[in-house]
Amino acid sequence: MLYPINLELKDLQITIIGGGEVAYRKCKNFLDFDKNVKVVSLDFIDKFNELKDNIEIIRDTYKEEYIKESFIVVAATNNKETNKQIGIYCRDNGKLVNVVDDINLSNYTVPSYIRRGDLLISVSTGGKSPSLSSKIKKELSEKYDDSYEEYINLLGIARVNIIKKYENISQRKKMLNDLVNLTLEELREHIKSN
């Protein structure tokens, strides 16, 4: 069973081995979180050209030296044996690895997610049904639209104000819990009046 966790990627080295569609999608996911990535492959699909200013591209075959310093590795080649080698090396050396064609060699997966500023909602089926994850993600995207970015920011401002203003812990807790029942407009008004 997989354990859900959010990682701060800022100081972590990330390497993707592969230059195809799956590698591209994985790369885009990391870039969504402002993380530079090293991508190693002899051949790259054209889509990588739009990312070239934000990633390090190494045109070569897989070699251990490319992942030695990495904390997170994605094995996304079109060669099952190479992916297996990467998976085994990473597991033996305490690295997080996602082997795209072998969930049993992976020690992490990446859930489908929706990001609205600091609101991050993720959905996972443990690799059993990416289609179901995608369906649920679509449903959640409609419910939690782009306005939630502002909503979360306003909740953060209100929280800081309440913590500064009220010393009584139970009073704070009740007020903070009541805030999440406000609409966006009501929350805006609450911030203006406090």
Rank of each mutant, 00 (worst) to 15 (best):
V74W: 11
S131N: 15
Y89Q: 06
L132A: 10
L132H: 01
S133I: 01
K84W: 04
K84V: 07
I121T: 02
P111M: 13
V123P: 03
Y89D: 08
I88V: 15
T77F: 12
V99I: 14
E81K: 08
D102W: 06
S124R: 13
L105P: 13
R115W: 15
P130F: 12
Y89M: 02
N93K: 13
K80F: 15
I86E: 06
A76V: 07
G94C: 01
I72Y: 05
I88M: 04
V97R: 03
P130Q: 15
S106Q: 07
V123D: 00
D102K: 03
N107D: 11
S70V: 02
R91C: 06
L119Y: 11
S122D: 07
S134G: 10
R115K: 15
G127Q: 14
T77V: 08
V123E: 08
G87W: 02
K95R: 06
N93P: 07
Q85V: 02
D101G: 14
S122Y: 12
A75D: 04
I86T: 08
D92Y: 00
V110L: 15
I121R: 05
N107G: 04
I103N: 09
S133F: 00
N104Y: 04
S112Q: 10
T77Y: 07
V97S: 11
D118F: 07
G94V: 00
I88G: 00
S134K: 13
L105V: 15
S106E: 06
R116Y: 11
Y108V: 08
D102R: 05
K95P: 07
G87M: 00
V100P: 05
I121S: 06
D118H: 11
V100N: 01
L120M: 12
R115G: 05
S112R: 07
